[in-house]
Nucleic acid binder design. Sequence first.
DNA 1: CAACCGTCCTGTATCGTTCCAGACTGTATC
DNA 2: GATACAGTCTGGAACGATACAGGACGGTTG
Lengths: 377, 377
Amino acid sequence: MSVERPTLDTVAKAAGVSRMTVSNAYNRPDQLSAATRERVLAAAAALGYGGPDPAGRSLRRGRAGTIGVILTESLSYAFTDPGLVQFLRGVGDEMSAAGQAMLLLPADADDDGSLVRSAIVDAFIVCSIRDDDPAVTAVRSRHLPFVSSGSPRLPAAPYVGIDNRKAAVLAAEHLLALGHRRLGIVGVPEEMPVAPDSRVVRTRQGFAERVAGFVATAAAVGIDPDSVVVAYAETNAVDSGAEAATRLLGRRQRPTAIFAVSDVLALGTLSAAASLDITVPGELSVVGFDDIDEAAHSRPPLTTIAQDLREQGRQAARLALGLVEGKTTRSRPWRPHLLVRESTAVAPRSRRGTGVTAVTGDAVVRDLRPSRPGATH
Amino acid sequence: MSVERPTLDTVAKAAGVSRMTVSNAYNRPDQLSAATRERVLAAAAALGYGGPDPAGRSLRRGRAGTIGVILTESLSYAFTDPGLVQFLRGVGDEMSAAGQAMLLLPADADDDGSLVRSAIVDAFIVCSIRDDDPAVTAVRSRHLPFVSSGSPRLPAAPYVGIDNRKAAVLAAEHLLALGHRRLGIVGVPEEMPVAPDSRVVRTRQGFAERVAGFVATAAAVGIDPDSVVVAYAETNAVDSGAEAATRLLGRRQRPTAIFAVSDVLALGTLSAAASLDITVPGELSVVGFDDIDEAAHSRPPLTTIAQDLREQGRQAARLALGLVEGKTTRSRPWRPHLLVRESTAVAPRSRRGTGVTAVTGDAVVRDLRPSRPGATH
DNA sequence: CAACCGTCCTGTATCGTTCCAGACTGTATC
DNA sequence: GATACAGTCTGGAACGATACAGGACGGTTG
């Protein structure tokens, strides 16, 4: 037993052939006779040779056969976010199909970008990381193709994602059309510390845009923006969402409708309402965001802004794989839509006037649409 | 703009230094003067050099800085299994801490093991894949250290996981102690086709052992093993679980207690019961397996066999990282335990005799414990 | 003045593979 | 009998990086 790992040369010598023949035995069986191949593989087995070293191959070929996925947060947190998991699932779909592997890189363990710099990949997919994060800087400096996804849209890179502001408008329109005038929002701070002990990852999943879009839409029909109270959850987790919603629902004039900037938070909101014996949608309407799997199975099933995160993941992967091949496909922005389930209903009869003229839902919706469609591009 | 990517040599020539000095500018700033370093980096930037190529480094250093995680199924399916996600989360914890990345390899896209053979990693973690799967064969042939996890325990490799049979005994003991005698099981076929269009991955997450352990325990107190009906779900998913449970609950003599071999299936069972207006735990007790996050939040909260999958992931990662360093740490087998929440209760008064002598819970439990503890090791 | 120091930098060898051009067979073709 | 031609196999030259040994140099020391 030698400590040295055998190489193509070792095997070649043992089998009495050239190095190249050994390589061919593994990679191009048609380039040598079956007998020779047999002999070579036998020699390799005897030496405990593990097959051509991928590191050598990757160097020579100039391809890694791997796409790097850079996650906003620690891997640990990433897996707790069902939306992100859906996205990764989509990426995985395409990777499997392309026979490639995916390398998961946590941005939070990578203050100096060293993980990114040492990743043996052909391209990157960057998930919801701000432009000024060291991980993004590192990606740029690698001069490898990359795709940005989620939010924000990184300059000079193909982007997969939705317009969060516009998406939130859909939620607001829906609730206003149902007659709701006392509105609340469960949000997440712009820069969310992922865990108490982790550095503040400069993440931005578009939560702020969602809040802004919602408030602006409400304001457009005469609702005082300051009356739309935003309760911030500490993190994007069910428990935090429940905690924030409890604060909102404990207020003197509690809202009749809550927009949660993610389904996870919306689930927390449902749970908070249940604890306080507030019926949904009878006394409280709840709209979520993302349409994660659980949204369909909650009680009641969640009305939400659906963005097909899995398909977005697929598209991001296709884009990245295409870039490796030198294709510069452009992707169209993604279209979210409102998915009405059972967590929203007509506003309960208010105990006092709201000061806002009642309008029919349809009228409101029409009024709120951009007057010059497409001009916002 | 040249098509050629610049290398250390290109930069060295441009900066008027040796190749090694450029390398040091990136990797060992203390090995050269600040002025030279500045000059080198400026030249690199001007040329659009992306920093030392990790492929070359990996070849030379003989380390990849990456652990490969081989998943039973397509990446797509993997992300839908909360238990597996928890495990991956644990792996991620350790990887982040060690400053390493994790490479996700779907076994199903890898009929011939080519993905495994071309993975640039220092070690593998194999998740719930049978010994005879091509992916496992490929791992073996790589002669790299690897850890097996879940089930089955692969020969000659460190293992992280529980004894599924013993774990299921805990579930059976609990239900029997509550007086249940008409028992049902929601299981998953031994070889589960992950998706209609995918090859049959030869997976085994220990589901069969769980069924066997449960039935044997019931038999030990005089229950006819054939009376313990097993309904097989097509896949390990909530909907499939609900479908299987519905079959079980539609039987003439419907069971008063159901053991689901995973929490996901148990959640499906709860949902099926709700649809059929069967109260849990009043008319039906349900025990799950895994203790995924959702188990605590279901209605009612799920009694389950807890195995700390996240911690198992951590341990698997530590083991793998250790093996790379040449440490041959041995791990002890993992200990599952029964976590009683609110989905189980004393059996409803039976409408007819069961033919089994009533025994107290405690007595049953004691009787069922192995007579020679430790002898099964 | 020789010996020696630390700092900064260079040159060569090597990691394990694959590409490429060509050489050597033996058979078929003109 | 020369030519062409697959089918096999070989040796040299990259691929892009790092390890390592050592050289140049200005300065200190005895």
